[in-house]
Amino acid sequence: MKKIRNSLTAVLFLLVCFLPVFLSDPALAAAIPESRQKPLVVDEAELLTPQEEESLLARLEEISERQKCDVALVTVNSLDGKTIRNFADDFFDYNGYGWGSADDGLILVVDMKTRQWWISTHAYAITAFTDAGIDYIGDKISGSLSSGNYANAFFKYASLCDDFLTEARKGTPYDTGHLPKEKPGVLMLLLALGIGGVAGLIVVTVMRSQLKNVKPQESAQNYMTREGLRLSEERDLFMYSKTHRTARPKDTGGSSSSSSGSSTHTSSSGRSHGGGGGRF
């Protein structure tokens, strides 16, 4: 009995000792580990071959180290009944993701059951990855995700995150009106050659027209007498009028100005997250 009482006393003592810690951060602060508990790539849904996973992990570690911001991704088959947003936030928080004391970082969650993706950002990553930026990344990877080129999608995600972080470090994070420029593709090459062809055709047509200067004169303007035209009657008579009306397009009132910046929300851990997602 005494043993039990002693143990209880010890537990109580411990509780009393750590109570200030609990009180200072009441929302399960202790559940957020100091250091990262999981690797930057967690492939629970088994979408990658071991070799792919290994090289992707190396790539993400290199980027995270260099940019001082964790770039992580996790694939799952179940969201444990949470929304994908909450799942992503919690996965990030409770597994201790994030670089440095501020826990700068972002995580991409791909859920194979609902076929959704979500990017949750925290701390500096909220600045670097705006809503428009996350949509842009989603646009670039969802095609590969849909068609099953997961490795392709994830490497693209890695290099885009790298670009986004580099741009953010310059003080100009990608945002509405300042998204990465598209590299010209084959279509643009054809367009350029088409324009060149038209320009060439204009030049040679002009050159060819210089070889031909024989044409009939349809006018006798040169032979008009000096007095020119003498009008004896000049009347402009109004006959009738016709009025048509078309309904004006109704202004729906909603301003369509595109927003910029990052929107944030508070996760279950009490920390602030940014993010965005979609389906594939």
Partner: peptide, 23 residues
Amino acid sequence: DYNYTKTNYYSIIRRGTVGFERV
């Protein structure tokens, strides 16, 4: 509510003389 287009139709008369020399 509406955009209006009114087309006025006119009948224009011109009468006169013009001279040509050595066409």
